[in-house]
């Protein structure tokens, strides 16, 4: 079976600084892939490179059999890749509903409409006319995730969606991830929190200083081994 996303020898550098790579990895449709790694390992650089927003990148990115390496960010989004970016990056002067609508308008038709999103996140339904700056961190993250889902992507990239959130809120967000996967969407989860992301992942890659130093299935891998590779020991 061909992979949904197939990355070959991708590297990213910022000026003289080499931040990532070369790395190669694949994500299948209906598969949850976890990317773990410590601070500065290059996880966000990998996510940004996939959507064409990393400083300078080399390598090859194939999505659904088509080379998207040279496409613009907006084209990649419309091809069916949604990134829920680190730090949420909502539009502060827009309301909850307007933020969601932007994702929906430019996205594709599919399973996720407003009703589904408001059913997944009832807290947003009550606050749809509020400006996003009046929301709690968890609710803002729901908007960011909802905005990504409303585009009805085939591949969803989540960059540290649990950062700074209370454990109950994180559990709430992670409850949804397998439901999304079950609709045939490929998912990449970037986290520093190993336990949380390995618990939902089908496969994982561990990054250290820009390189993959361990990959496999969480079920077949010893936790101590993961921890050693994570810290580079």
């Amino acid at each position: 079976m061909d992979a949904l996303l197939d990355i070959t020898d991708l590297s990213v550098s910022y000026g003289p600084f080499h931040a990532l790579g070369p790395v190669s990895l694949t994500v299948g449709a209906g598969e949850i892939v976890s990317i773990i790694g410590a601070n500065g390992a290059g996880k966000s650089s990998l996510m940004k490179a996939i959507v064409g927003q990393a400083g300078r990148s080399e390598g090859k990115i194939v999505f659904e059999g088509e080379d998207i390496t040279a496409r613009t960010t907006a084209q990649i989004a419309r091809a069916g890749i949604a990134l829920v970016p680190e730090g949420r990056r909502l539009f502060p002067s827009l309301t909850v509903e307007e933020n969601l609508r932007i994702g929906w308008e430019v996205g594709r038709q599919g399973a996720f409409g407003f009703d589904e999103i408001y059913a997944l996140f009832p807290a947003l339904a009550e606050r749809r006319t509020l400006h996003v700056r009046h929301l709690s961190g968890g609710q803002q993250q729901m908007v960011a995730l909802g905005r990504g889902l409303l585009a009805n992507p085939k591949l969803l990239l989540c960059d540290e969606i649990s950062l700074g959130l209370a454990p109950v809120v994180i559990a709430d967000l992670y409850r949804i991830i397998p439901e999304i996967r079950d609709r045939g969407i490929g998912i990449v989860i970037v986290e520093q929190d190993i336990t949380r992301s390995l618990a939902v992942a089908d496969r994982f890659y561990c990054l250290l200083e820009g390189r993959v130093n361990l990959s496999g299935r969480p079920t077949n891998t010893n936790r101590d081994e993961v921890a050693r590779h994570y810290f580079g020991m």
Binding site: T73, A74, A77, F91, E98, R101, G107, R147
Partner: peptide, 21 residues
């Protein structure tokens, strides 16, 4: 809707591109 798009791009052009605008 056009106004919301204009405000979104004004807020953050890079993220607007990210969601396909």
């Amino acid at each position: 809707r056009l106004g919301a798009r204009i405000r979104a791009v004004s807020d953050d052009p890079a993220t607007a591109n990210l969601v396909g605008l």
